[in-house]
Design a protein around this nucleic acid. Structure first.
Lengths: 281, 281
DNA sequence: TTGACTTTAGAACAGGTGTTCCAGAACAAT
DNA sequence: ATTGTTCTGGAACACCTGTTCTAAAGTCAA
């Protein structure tokens, strides 16, 4: 077999090569090819032995298959299938063209100019929002809205960079004519008002690392007192995660040295609206 | 280590267990936990040795980590991460095409459950950011940064829904060790401190319609006194536009009955960073 | 300090990995 | 039929896998 060596780096190319080479392949290799395209996930994760059993061939045949496609061995071929898996897991078809556009845009722009700063923030913000959508389980928003709709008053707590988010939530809830209180610590008073929060109320708490200790303390204290706590934080390992009934985790993959507020703010607005809808029915 | 054996079958459960067990873990295990949540894909595909190198521990530590979570060994834990990967890859969670969602929302306000709320906000947020990028002239950010870098103190003013943006700017400027003052009107005092702002200072003012009268007044007064004013508002007809040296206009195309804060927040962060870069050279 | 205990590093191990190799089967052409 | 070539099965191999085990280091209380 001549089998010119293309060695496609990604799955799409691989499919192309495969369909090109397929007619010239031996029956066995054709069977493997069919299997590979029908079970790309297995190809990504299983071992050669397992796959060979699945196709009904010897492991060596799998290696030959990979080599027929120009790869050194099966492992190298498998890398392509794995690549497909990870790419699919963090890219949505509807948003893909955005990414590409942003990437292209970034590439074209010089990075340091002040015009580039905004472009970068826009790009990061979009990425941030995409990730928000990936990370938040659909039921969480509903669960949070339900908790909140059952509560007498809603308290909102967030300090430092999380304060804008907290403020906005309190503000918007008031616009909905709900009884919402912002726990600012004006005049150094935080814990005193926090102690009035009871099991019939609810607490929305926002904090990212490094988690402001006072905020965490209040959240934990409330949780211990059976107050429903809705948390917005970054991580499952956040101390807030343990102290919350519903916990939104907004991980940040940006390269920036500081946190983007775009995603938390967006979530906050969605939460308020979800609550509004919950109540109006 | 007690470490009751939960042995979560899926990634969500695993995250829960992890956050529960985290506080009781040894420092090394905590590091591994952090790494695992930050690199779930690597956890799914790499070998123990590779991952261990990534975290900076011995392979045995990875195994201990898995066992601490109740699994027999690392392989069993890895299966959970792999499960997540394949699940994500073949169920595109909602949001097939976000444009469709926007259209649907605009046209027939077909509400599609609380999960849909978030998807819509994400979609609107992305649209919002894209528009931000189109609307802001490249030079404006530079111009604003330059004005600000020449000023003695920076005052920031924004009320109601614009307050989060104002607060954030003041907060971030303080982090840059600049002299920034937030003009909140705690205790009903707004105009008094505002009167101290002089031509060598600068004012950043944020307001969308309907423009809070007090805010507009302060901005106009400052402008009349030759204070450099940087405005963030919604369109060219805004009263702030006339009272500003640099004016960012963030029009909103959304059909939502209220304003999205995603774009202004993003602009605010970009502005701060642009200023930071301006100063450091 | 001492002593009990936990945490960590690293070597050792058994089993499984991907790969190679070669003899024989299948096939096509003469 | 026979030859030349391709294809397939299966054993053999070197290596790397995940795991276990032990001893050293670290931690904390008294």
């Amino acid at each position: 077999m001549a089998a010119s060596a293309p060695r496609s780096g990604n799955y799409e190319q691989l499919k192309g090569e495969l369909s090109r080479l397929y007619p010239g392949m031996s029956p066995q290799l054709q069977r493997i090819a069919t299997f590979a395209l029908e079970h790309p996930q297995d190809m990504a994760l299983d071992t050669v032995a397992t796959l060979a059993r699945g196709v009904g061939v010897q492991p060596s045949a799998m290696v030959r298959f990979a080599q027929a496609l120009g790869y050194d061995g099966f492992s190298e071929l498998q890398r392509v299938f794995r690549g497909r898996l990870v790419e699919r897991s963090n890219t949505y078809p509807g948003l893909r063209n955005y990414r590409e556009r942003i990437e292209a845009f970034r590439a074209g722009q010089q990075r340091s100019g002040p015009g580039g700063v905004l472009a970068q923030f826009v790009a990061d913000g979009i990425a941030s929002l995409e990730q928000l959508h990936e990370q938040v389980a659909p039921g969480d928003l509903a669960a949070a809205a339900k908790e909140l709709s059952n509560s007498k008053s809603i308290y909102v707590l967030g300090h430092r960079r999380s304060f804008p988010v907290a403020y906005y939530i309190a503000y918007a809830l008031n616009q909905l004519e709900l009884e919402a209180h912002l726990l600012d610590s004006v005049g150094g008073m935080l814990k005193e008002p926090a102690r009035q929060i009871g099991p019939k109320d609810a607490l929305i708490v926002i904090s990212f690392k490094n988690y402001t200790p006072e905020v965490v303390e209040v959240a934990q204290a409330c949780h211990a007192r059976k107050v429903p706590v809705i948390a917005i934080t970054d991580n499952a390992l956040s101390p807030l995660a343990r102290a919350a009934r519903v916990c939104f985790q907004i991980e940040e993959k940006t390269s920036k040295p500081f946190r983007m507020l775009v995603a938390p703010m967006c979530l906050a607005q969605a939460l308020v609206v979800a609550l509004g809808e919950q109540i109006s029915k």
